[in-house]
């Protein structure tokens, strides 16, 4: 039964040697290796994470850039359109104003012309009236130079005057 009976000497040496080697390696061996490798793994994991983050940020930037370009283009178009509209409006307004001004001037001119015309007509009428009174004076003086004619004239006037109220009534 040699095989299945643990031998004391071997037990003793195994405990001593395994214990010593384990103590040494647990102190100066394995923790150094595993700590180093773990720190490296952590660094690699961190680097991968950072790379992912940067990639995500880059992608975000790219879309942001595209968006900015798009808005700029839209704004440019809007500004251009607005400018055109303003220009058209200003031109239209100016035209409108000019027309109104012209109309006003024209109307004023017409009124003035009408007034001038009126005053001219009044002058002419006054002149004509004066002339006709002078002509009538001259004619009367000439015609009423003799008695007979004076009498005849007075009679006609009386007749006329007599007839005239009847006509009015």
């Amino acid at each position: 039964m040699n095989l299945v009976t643990p031998d004391f000497g071997l037990l003793f040496w195994m405990v001593v040697i395994f214990g010593i080697v384990f103590f040494l390696l647990a102190k100066f061996g394995f923790p150094i290796i595993t700590d180093m490798v773990e720190s490296r793994s952590a660094k690699i994991a961190q680097s991968l994470k950072d790379a992912d983050e940067i990639e995500a940020r880059m992608a975000a930037w790219k879309t942001e850039q595209a968006q900015m370009l798009e808005t700029a283009r839209r704004e440019q178009a809007a500004i251009l359109r607005e400018a055109t509209e303003t220009k058209n409006k200003i031109v239209a307004d100016a035209k409108e104003q000019a027309r109104a001004e012209a109309d006003k001037i024209l109307a004023e001119a017409k009124l003035q012309i009408a007034a001038e015309k009126e005053s001219a007509l009044r002058d002419v009428r006054k002149e004509v009236a004066l002339l006709s009174v002078q002509v009538a004076e001259k004619v009367l003086r000439h015609e009423l130079s003799d008695e007979g004619s004076r009498r005849a004239f007075i009679d006609s006037l009386v007749d006329e005057a007599g007839k005239a109220p009847m006509q009015h009534t």
């Binding site: 395994f18 080697v21 384990f22 390696l25 647990a26 061996g29 394995f30 923790p31 595993t34």
Partner: peptide
């Protein structure tokens, strides 16, 4: 696990 890892490695 870090407490036991050296023994298991050994």
């Amino acid at each position: 696990y870090k407490r036991y890892s050296p023994y298991l490695c050994m």
